[in-house]
Design a protein around this nucleic acid. Structure first.
Length: 474
RNA sequence: GGCGCUGUACCCAAGUGGUAAGGGAGAGGUCUGCAAAACCUUUAUUCAGCGGUUCGAAUCCGCUCGGCGCCUCCA
């Protein structure tokens, strides 16, 4: 059984073979090389952006779950029109400006429980490698210089357009192909290197001073970090054209070898039925939502729970639904931890867990079908709840089940969330004890009073036959 | 105009040829001093619509209607 993923290049579901060479065992494969297009650090990322980054996270986590090791890079674009403009507007250096938003970006990633990746190259730290590629392209005569800017010559790269299927495209009447201020021979040619304008930062090169075009950094970083064909390249669907098409053109023209084996593209997050985007103004940042009182955990759940190739319509109601779903999982774990029974009289626990793994893997192997996998998981939750109600599980069974849930959570990343120690634990515990005594004394008025008081603080009490447990409402 | 994604219950969402997963919400029941949690039962003769292929289709084909995106910076 192998993982199947949808490759934008072939528009088909393909069996995933890292390195292009089938091996006997998963552990025989070299680390899976992944490159993900990261953010341009000119302002806060919005949660549409995070949908893609959470998908990247799901992908690498699942590969690891399946036994692959991963070598994953995500870039930080820290020089482009927007960052330059932003720095200028604030009267600080480009570096000061981009450092600020880079830091915020990584904080947000952490809040969403997105694993750090192995490499986070910055565009401004990869100039040398960009020039290397440009030299190669130059040697092959596939570029030209126009007013100090260097352009890739589409007409000399016949494969251009294979990824986006736009090679034979007709130009829509009125399309703004003349938007670029520079002189290009063909409207579809794109800048490898841009001549400096007034007040803009620039780097000295054998081709003269200037700054990178947008697409060159990804090609350069991939070469710098991986040095050869990579397995997976990810990004939002809006990057298929022109960004990824241009990356392919640059890298394959320069090095004459296949650039990427599998192209994975994440569909957009919609809000009110339209694409969430900065320019449209219809976006939420993570901070917006946190300020509204939502937690990162249900946000992660919501963004991860729909299949990545389907548009997902974001609503605040969706976050609430996610909170409820998570509560169901949390309640199960609380119940499992509460089991004290020592003797074993149930023999199906291992089978139940084995089936969980099998069905989960089957769903996820199919192009990372997380919704199917969640269905499998919640069926398991129901079964275990029933077993607990029937008092069939021992403490040992419960521990095995918790371990299995944690194993799946190495992929989900929304169950075990960092939670701070409860500073009020002692006080709450004392009140709980007082209430137990009140109940014994049939003083239900006082008992309810305590319960209501704690509820005000968001603390839920649950009476079980073994005593009272409490939890914070998430 | 070209290239894509998409339309499944009140909401979210799997299923891509074998007779509709799962979550939320709703209703009834069990348990409980009352709750909460959990469990049980229940909620789509039907998958935008209409044709076709097939023993059999939500799944394949055709047409129609609707939503979204890319073709310009964009995850």
């Amino acid at each position: 059984m192998a993982i199947k993923i949808y490759n934008t290049m072939s528009r088909k579901l393909e069996e995933f073979i890292p390195g292009g060479e089938p091996k006997e065992q998963i552990t025989d494969y070299p680390p899976v090389t992944i490159y993900s297009c990261g953010p341009t650090v000119y302002s806060f990322a919005h949660i549409g952006n995070f949908r893609t980054f959470i998908f990247n996270d799901l992908l690498r986590r699942y590969l690891k779950f399946r036994g692959y090791s991963v070598d994953h890079a995500m870039n930080i674009t820290d020089v482009d029109d927007k960052t330059i403009k932003g720095a200028l507007a604030e009267g600080i250096t480009l570096k000061e400006y981009t450092d600020k938003y880079t830091k915020i970006f990584f904080e947000d990633l952490k809040k969403l429980n997105i694993e750090p990746v192995e490499h986070n190259p910055r565009a401004t730290e990869s100039i040398e490698e960009m020039i290397d590629i440009i030299k190669k392209i130059d040697e092959k005569g596939i570029m030209y210089n126009s007013e100090g800017s260097l352009y890739f010559d589409i007409s000399k790269f016949p494969q251009y357009g294979r990824l986006s299927n736009l090679d034979k495209r007709e130009i829509k009447a009125g399309a703004r192909y003349d938007a670029d201020e520079y002189n290009k021979e063909d409207v579809r040619d794109f800048a490898l290197w841009k001549a400096p304008k007034e007040n803009e930062p620039f780097w000295e090169t054998p081709y003269g001073p200037g700054r990178p075009g947008w697409h060159i950094e990804c090609s350069a970083m991939i070469r710098k970090i991986f040095g050869k064909t990579i397995d997976i390249h990810t990004g939002g669907v809006d990057l298929i054209f022109p960004h990824h098409e241009n990356e392919i053109a640059q890298s394959e023209a320069a090095y004459g070898e296949k650039f990427v084996r599998y192209w994975l593209h994440v569909e957009h997050l919609l809000v009110d039925g339209a694409k969430m985007s900065k320019s449209a103004g219809n976006f939420y940042t993570l901070r917006d939502l946190l300020n509204m009182g939502y937690s990162p955990r249900p946000i992660r759940y919501l963004l991860i729970s729909a299949h990545y190739r389907k548009q997902l319509n974001f609503t605040l109601e969706g976050i609430k639904h996610s909170e409820q779903a998570l509560e169901r999982i949390d309640n199960l774990i609380v119940r499992l931890r509460d089991i004290k029974k020592e003797e074993h009289n149930f023999n199906e626990c291992d089978n139940l867990i084995a089936k969980l793994y099998f069905d989960f893997t089957e769903a996820m192997d199919n192009d990372l079908n997380i919704s199917g996998a969640l269905g499998v998981f919640f069926e398991f939750v129901s079964k275990v709840n029933t077993l607990i109600s029937e008092e069939k599980l021992s403490k040992n069974d419960a521990e095995k089940i918790i371990a299995a849930i944690n194993k799946l959570d190495s992929v989900f990343g929304f169950i075990n969330f960092e939670s701070e120690e409860d500073v009020d634990a002692e006080r709450i515990e004392a009140l709980v004890q007082e209430r137990i005594q009140a109940k014994k004394d049939k003083n239900f008025k006082r008992a309810d009073e305590i319960r209501d008081m704690l509820k005000e603080e968001g603390i839920i009490l649950e009476d079980t036959k073994d005593g009272t447990r409490w939890k914070r409402k998430k």
